[in-house]
Design a protein around this nucleic acid. Structure first.
Lengths: 242, 242
DNA sequence: ATGTGTGAAGTGCTTCACAGCG
DNA sequence: CGCTGTGAAGCACTTCACACAT
């Protein structure tokens, strides 16, 4: 991630022209770090909790204490997207929730395709948490004739990857999830880009090299496990202090 | 991650006492950042590729170019763990591979338990990449009487979570994978800690609060998707510059 | 001559601390 | 007063650049 994006020196400098609060000053998403974007998603989730509890207003202080976050960071993050707070009062939970959800594009359902109908791909297709809250599986693909036409446990059909481009275009899909073996990942990723996908969630243990404009996030289970393993004080190694 | 670890000011300062290269100077894993640990895992994978190709020696320069990494970072990372390189020559692939694998504890098989036999838990249990290369599924647990006793597609039995502590102790398991619903995650995590697990890979969309000494890594699929969604130039939003 | 190991510089994320608004 | 929004400081990871080992 090279982040050679020109700085928007004046965007955040601007004060509201009229007396009202500015919900949505122009901001370039590409200028927002993935750290901030990730926290945005966390905030939406936390706000949903507060809203369900009937909480109307919350200060960054209380919000931080409640969810084990840093209040300054919350304020800074939120200020990136607009002036949502009221000084001396805090933030209006429901309104903020709606705003942030809209910034993430969660106010309308995003269709997602999954490429690779192995164990993992099928499990993700059937995974409830994937289906709810603004995301829906548009289709599940594979290139194995033995799998095409079959259905997952919850009844999602496995389609021929040859149909990928057509379905992506027809359903307006922007996000693809890659759950194919490592050996197939690079070529599948290229097909995804050719089909018009703009973001990929890659479960294959491969670093994908993609054109600018296409975002990738890698979820590499083996690397996660190995990294965890690294920190485990092994019974054999007595060296590490307790 | 608070990283309040005291600095090991002198550990990296020490020069070799004898004339020979020191493969393994004492280092405290807790003083190694997760960034470095993650890359360590990447390096091992890359080295396996080179070794399979029959490459004997590699310089940080070539290594970096081959796998799209930064040569200075490679040298710095490796220097954290010992002096593996030979000046003017580079690194001996097979030897370095072995050393790094040993540092990650991959030279012996790590047993892993999975808690939560839903779609995802079963898929991970069956996932080949999980099984190979130093990790093995010791057991798959659930608390649903309807699932206990059943088997995954590849034949792994679903066991009662009541057996968790006994099996962890008997098999010497240190790593747990949590694939239960969000509502159950906190209590399951507590059980994991009580059972003696030292590292958790958490797929539940919840921030686990655990005692020091227990590492967590979160894989939150919904947050990944939402973060990706954030960067997608939505057809509705015309504001963003091309 | 070549390439490691490493101090120093660079970069960017996080946290502090406070001016100023409500 | 309380709390936001934000410049400035702090901190951590990355990259540079070079002394020095081979």
């Amino acid at each position: 991630m090279k982040t050679v994006i020109e700085r928007g020196e004046d965007v955040s400098r601007r004060r509201p022209a009229a007396g009202t609060r500015r919900p949505h000053p122009a901001f370039d998403p590409r200028a927002v770090s993935e750290f901030t974007a990730t926290r945005l998603s966390v905030y939406v989730r936390c706000l949903a909790v507060l809203e369900a509890e009937g909480v109307r207003h919350v200060s960054s202080q209380h919000f931080a204490r409640r969810f084990d976050l840093n209040s300054a960071q919350i304020r800074k993050d939120l200020a990136t997207f607009g002036e949502f707070g009221v000084r001396g009062v805090g933030y209006e939970v429901s309104e903020l929730h709606k705003h942030l959800a809209s910034i993430l594009g969660l106010d309308r359902t995003r269709r997602v395709v999954i490429i690779g109908a192995g164990h993992l791909g099928q499990a993700l297709a059937d995974y409830g948490g994937f289906q709810s809250d603004g995301f829906a599986i548009a289709a599940l693909f594979d290139n194995d004739a033995g799998k095409i036409g079959a259905r997952t446990r919850t009844g999602i059909a496995v389609r021929d990857i040859a149909e990928l481009a057509a379905i992506v275009a027809r359903e307006g899909v922007a996000i693809g999830v890659i759950t194919v073996p490592a050996s197939a990942a690079a070529s599948v990723a290229r097909r995804c880009v050719a089909a018009g996908l703009k973001a990929l969630l890659n479960f294959a243990p491969v670093r994908l090299n993609l054109p600018p404009g296409v975002r990738v996030r890698n979820v590499d289970l083996k690397i996660h496990l190995e990294t965890l393993a690294f920190y485990i004080p092994s019974p054999a190694t007595k060296g590490a202090p307790a």
